[in-house]
Amino acid sequence: MTYKNIKLAYDGRIARVTLARPDKLNPLDWSTVKELKAAVVEIEAQRGIDFVLLTGEGRSFSAGGDLDGYINLYAHPDEFQAFLGDFYDMLTGIEQASAIWIAAVNGVCVAGGIELLLACDMALAAEGAKIGDGHLNFGQLPGAGGSQRLPRAIGLLRAKHLMLTGELLDARTSESWGLVTKVVPDAGLIAAAEEWITGMATKSAIGLAGAKRLANMTLDTPYEDGLRQEIAFVHRYATTEPDATEGLLAFKEKRTPRFGARKED
């Protein structure tokens, strides 16, 4: 696929996805959502891609949806339903992907932008970032999972605060609330994300994908069912994946583990 609104590049085990309409603060209009949806599928199909670094070009991660475009979509309910379906598929694809998605939040991250952030596995922010829901500031409601993912990420009271007030949090407050886990100087944002990747790249790629799947299980699985599924998953991993035994042998022999590449699902 030819991408116009995003940039997609590959660098070893990393896919780099950049929202690339800085003049419009990287809006998540329908065409951009379709491109991101296609990129998720393309990246998952690539062999050896274990990490995705997602950021925005210019002074914004993403300022959210295209409000002008919504006026037309609202007048065509079937098209609006299709748009919401594409947005759902794209964000669910990120959550369910085997690769680890890391959001590097630069500048404004609001409305659809925070919904994109919340679908990622890890997030860090530049000191100048501003993060919030903001839908109601323009009479809108979150329609890409924000009303469900935000309370799960930061708790119900704080989620309702962001949704109802439209407040944008600075980077440090976003960190303390749990929207991101690290704040770095603006100029060091990508380097800090790459440092995370360098650390994770020493681990089992199969193990990383498995840990992501186990953690995400808590979102829609009753506690006791989750515990049972964890046992079944870990038993299968430990008894069929060489990386599990390799890690133990490396520890015993006091050497660096030699993990294999992630297998295709």
Rank of each mutant, 00 (worst) to 15 (best):
S31F: 15
S31T: 15
S31G: 15
T32A: 12
T32L: 10
V33S: 08
V33I: 13
V33R: 04
K34A: 11
E35F: 08
L36S: 14
A38S: 15
A38M: 13
A38R: 13
V40K: 05
V41P: 08
I43S: 03
E44W: 06
E44N: 04
A45M: 02
A45R: 02
Q46S: 02
Q46N: 07
Q46F: 00
Q46V: 03
G48M: 05
I49L: 00
F51E: 01
F51Y: 07
V52H: 00
V52K: 03
V52N: 08
L53Y: 14
T55P: 02
T55Y: 05
T55L: 09
G56H: 14
G56P: 14
E57P: 04
G58S: 01
G58V: 00
S60E: 00
F61H: 01
F61D: 04
F61Y: 06
S62M: 05
A63R: 10
A63E: 12
G64W: 06
G65T: 09
L67H: 11
D68A: 10
D68K: 11
G69S: 01
G69A: 01
G69R: 01
Y70F: 10
N72L: 09
N72C: 05
L73I: 05
L73M: 11
L73S: 09
Y74R: 01
A75G: 05
H76W: 12
P77M: 07
D78L: 08
F80G: 12
F80S: 13
Q81F: 14
Q81K: 14
A82I: 15
A82S: 15
Y88H: 03
D89F: 06
M90H: 04
T92C: 15
T92N: 15
G93M: 02
I94Y: 11
E95R: 15
Q96V: 07
S98F: 06
I100Y: 09
I102N: 11
I102A: 09
V105W: 01
N106H: 10
N106R: 10
V108K: 07
V108E: 01
C109Y: 07
V110L: 08
A111M: 02
G112R: 04
G112S: 06
G113C: 03
G113Q: 00
I114D: 02
E115Y: 05
E115A: 12
L116S: 06
L116H: 05
L116N: 07
L118P: 13
L118I: 15
A119P: 09
D121R: 03
M122L: 10
L124N: 07
A125E: 06
A126M: 04
E127G: 11
E127A: 13
E127K: 13
A129I: 07
K130Y: 08
I131L: 08
I131M: 09
I131H: 05
I131Y: 03
G132V: 03
G132D: 02
D133A: 12
D133P: 10
L136P: 06
